[in-house]
């Protein structure tokens, strides 16, 4: 009897974890949205904006045999370090699984604010200068370098393109200087 109930509980637990792995983790989306006050959808980590369930590209119903295989591998990535190419996730989603492992992702649902620290400063998939974790907090897309908190992007780009900015500032200042003197000249010849 005891054995049976143990087995039943184990079965329930297994069913729970597997179904949780199959589903998305909307807690992260909800947190990002609340924290940033921006609209965020599943496309931050998933291949499709409406999430993994459905019959559109990047969703469960459209996976071919190869993609199904990759999905199975990805679902087994309990510990960090597995390069799982999950077809329903995008590059950022796959990176989270690689970095943390599903077990950790599952645990962190209760407090998604830890994600930024867990991902670290160095990962910046779109190369816009704002780390993936920070983009998660800001509710902007970690894979789109045109998406970011405007002010942060401004600072980043200013540093990145400072030569161009300096040239433009030089142009502005010399032209101001030039106009000043030409205006003086024109007032004198009048």
């Amino acid at each position: 009897m005891k054995k049976a109930s143990c087995a039943f509980i184990l079965f329930l637990l297994l069913a729970m974890t597997s179904s949780n792995n199959a589903n998305a983790f909307p807690e992260y989306q909800a947190w990002s949205q609340k924290h940033s006050k921006r609209t965020v959808n599943c496309a931050m980590c998933h291949a499709h904006g409406d999430g993994p369930e459905g019959s559109k590209p990047g969703q469960m119903d459209t996976l071919d045999a190869d993609a199904q295989k990759r999905l199975e591998v990805a679902r087994g990535a309990e510990k960090p370090g597995v390069h799982a190419d999950n077809p329903i996730l995008n590059e950022f989603g796959n990176y989270i699984v690689f970095k943390l492992g599903l077990e950790q992702v599952y645990k962190m649902r209760d407090d998604p604010s830890q994600l930024k620290q867990a991902l670290g400063e160095e990962s910046d998939h779109d190369g816009d200068g704002i780390s993936d974790g920070e983009e998660f907090e800001d509710g902007t897309h970690p894979l789109n370098n045109q998406s970011g908190a405007p002010w942060k992007l401004f600072i980043q780009n200013l540093q990145k393109k400072w030569v161009m900015v300096a040239i433009i500032l030089f142009i502005a200042i010399t032209s101001l200087f030039g106009f000043k003197h030409l205006l003086r000249y024109s007032s004198k010849v009048d």
Partner: peptide, 19 residues
């Protein structure tokens, strides 16, 4: 010019709308 160079206009829209 500097504004356009450094601040993408799209950054003011939430990304789901840019899909």
């Amino acid at each position: 010019f500097i504004t356009a160079l450094c601040i993408p206009f799209d950054s003011f829209s939430p990304f789901p709308l840019l899909a």
